[in-house]
């Protein structure tokens, strides 16, 4: 008796829930509310506060001044435009500096240097691009192997192995790299066997160490999307191309690679964004020349006590990230 009515009641409940969820309006609310609440409270609201702060000024004691007379674009101006120059000079200085750095022969195109913040920003973007390229160069063959060449029964195992490092804490893995790269470590002692490596040499505190850290940590984000697009490719197309006279390379370049491109694009964005915004990795592995924009932002919120400038820096970095995502979408990439 009791059980019957219970069953019926829960059946009714389930039906009610189903109807609520399926209704166009209530359904949207019920289904979206938890994530909307989460994002709104823990992401959008703090982000809005920081955005507001980025228009403020630093008080004498590191407090944030937000009165009307303090509000303005001064932090962004400080970020982009060297003191006592105009926007045009700053723009030219930045472009000139980029050319000077990129082309070895040219020196001092512009008398003014861009601000240290701008230089840092481009350096971080450089790190991001480099980490992405290396991740692609190392990750693509691996994804290709897992997705196409490896016997099917091992595929899942191989994928698990790619993800395996995530089971250990990020920090622990960075400290492990520290141990490997410092002088007289197992790795460095082994390398000392080589004729050009000095005894007691260390690779720590260098740009190389930072790049190694970035690639090591983020490469699974390149491998996984590339793998998923390679796995879906119909490889009889390759055979068809070769039947029609393409050699192995041409078949790969014209037939297979274009089909894996969505995965490559997605992977590149996923590696670039966290690499360019890295903080912990340059902090723990980098030397005097490896500071990145993330470290700058952190120091503004910490010892420098200048939240408005830190917030402005964070939003500039976010702008770069959004641009990279926009480029990804224009490039015809589709998630999934």
């Amino acid at each position: 008796m009791g059980r019957d009515s219970n069953d019926r009641a829960s059946g009714l409940d389930a039906q009610l829930v189903r109807r609520i969820r399926r209704n166009q309006w209530t359904g949207a609310i019920v289904n979206l509310a938890p994530s909307a609440f989460w994002l709104g409270v823990f992401f959008l609201a703090p982000l809005a506060v920081m955005f507001f702060f980025s228009f403020g000024e630093r008080g004498a004691f590191g407090e944030v001044l937000l009165a009307v007379e303090n509000l303005g674009l001064q932090q962004y101006r400080r970020f982009f435009i060297p003191e006592d120059t105009s926007i045009l000079v700053a723009l030219w200085a930045t472009v000139a500096w980029l050319i000077e750095t990129a082309v070895p022969g040219i020196e001092t195109l512009s008398a003014t240097q861009p601000t240290p913040y701008v230089r840092l920003l481009f350096k971080s973007i450089g790190y991001g691009v480099l980490a992405t390229v290396v991740s692609f160069a190392v990750g693509y063959p691996m994804a290709y192997y897992i997705g196409h060449i490896a016997p099917e029964r091992y595929q899942n195992l191989l994928i698990v192995l790619v993800i395996l490092p995530f089971w250990a804490s990020f920090l622990v893995r960075i400290y492990a790299i520290q141990l490997l790269l410092s002088a007289n470590s197992v790795l460095m002692s082994a390398l000392a066997v080589l004729p050009f490596v000095e005894q007691g040499a260390s690779l720590m505190y260098s740009q190389f160490a930072v790049l190694l850290g970035l690639v090591y940590i983020w490469i699974p984000f390149m491998i996984l999307p590339v793998y998923s697009s390679i796995e879906e490719i119909d490889f009889t197309l390759q055979e068809a191309a070769m039947d029609l006279g393409a050699d192995r390379f041409e078949a790969f370049y014209h037939v297979i690679f274009p089909q894996s491109k969505p995965g490559v694009m997605a992977g590149s964005v996923l590696v670039f964004i966290p690499s360019a915004g890295a903080y912990v990795i340059p902090e723990l592995l980098g030397g005097t020349d490896s500071q990145m924009i993330g470290n700058f932002i952190a120091s503004q919120f910490g010892s420098a006590g200048n939240w408005p400038l830190g917030a402005a820096g964070a939003f500039v970095l976010m702008g770069v990230m959004l641009l990279s995502i926009a480029a990804y979408q224009r490039g015809g990439g589709e998630l999934g």
Partner: peptide, 8 residues
């Protein structure tokens, strides 16, 4: 500012 210039 000086510190930022040194580091970058």
């Amino acid at each position: 500012n000086a510190w930022q210039e040194i580091k970058s």
